[in-house]
């Protein structure tokens, strides 16, 4: 059974149909990449799934339940983790406190007033940091971290609620090519170990074609292709939206 099923999702901004009748599914444990040129509707699609935007029409079924229009925090409580395009951590907290915060929330302990947070879920937080390779930095203020490390901490935060689905909006944006592959390899390994499904958007085709189990392609708000790496690579329509029809170069070709 699919973890996430998108049915005829649409969203209009003014006169622009940002997302137009998009449908797709993600199976349990699947690593699904959503690609498309700028303005294709990837972020809009993403923000509807994670609760930041309300769709005009269509269904977003998570584990069989329609989550369209729920608040971001409600969706998180159902078991959806996420990372941001521009990594966001709590700048006034240390690395481990960032992870502890998510664990505290997951354990419904936000409205506790007495026991100090510092001791709560510490082992579990260290464990999560260990998995993303950030255990050494546990005590550092998170605002001092290099960007690549912030992304790793974000991943640890996203895993804190033991999600069944992870949404990653351009997880490698702003990272050096070497770091990119390391991060995605790390995500892939964690996902395989835990059987989490991942939906991610990505601009780096290297990353997409090397790691994704399946790829969906959006262009001008519509889903134009859905398949494995090989079929997407050979898809004429995908080539057209990325490179044009090639007529411009026809004469110059050797």
């Amino acid at each position: 059974m699919s973890v996430l099923a998108i049915r005829s999702l649409s969203k209009t901004f003014g006169g622009v149909r940002a997302v137009n009748d998009v449908s797709f599914e993600i199976a349990q444990g699947e690593f699904l990449a959503m690609i498309g040129p700028n303005g294709a509707g990837k972020s809009t699609c993403f923000n509807m799934i994670n609760g930041q935007l309300e769709p005009d029409s269509g269904e977003i079924l998570f584990a069989g339940r329609d989550i369209a229009g729920l608040e971001a925090r409600e969706i998180w409580r159902l078991g959806v983790g996420r990372t941001f395009q521009v990594a966001a951590t709590f700048g006034s907290m240390t690395v481990i406190e960032n992870v502890q915060m998510a664990l505290i929330s997951h354990a419904h302990e936000i409205y506790h007033f007495w026991r100090a947070s510092a001791g709560l879920h510490r082992d579990r937080a260290l464990d999560l940091l260990e998995q993303v390779g950030m255990r050494e930095a546990a005590g550092r203020p998170s605002r001092e971290l290099a960007y690549g490390d912030v992304k790793r901490v974000e991943l640890a935060i996203a895993l804190a609620n033991e999600p069944r689905l992870l949404l990653m909006d351009e997880p490698t944006a702003g990272m050096a090519p070497r770091e990119r592959n390391d991060l995605i390899a790390l995500v892939k390994r964690l996902v395989v170990e835990r059987g989490i499904s991942v939906l991610f958007t990505e601009h780096s085709m290297d990353v997409v074609f090397a790691f994704a189990d399946r790829i969906i392609v959006l262009a001008r708000g519509r889903l134009i292709a859905d398949g494995d790496a090989a079929s997407i690579r050979d898809n004429a329509q995908v080539r057209e939206v990325y490179f044009g029809t090639g007529k411009t170069f026809a004469g110059a070709a050797p």
Binding site: N50, T89, G91, S92, E97, S105, I157
Partner: peptide, 18 residues
């Protein structure tokens, strides 16, 4: 902590259920 989290980043705080 939750209060500070909300101050530091509303988006992030909401995304972890606060």
């Amino acid at each position: 902590y939750a209060m500070r989290a909300g101050r530091d980043s509303v988006l992030r705080a909401e995304a972890i259920g606060i």
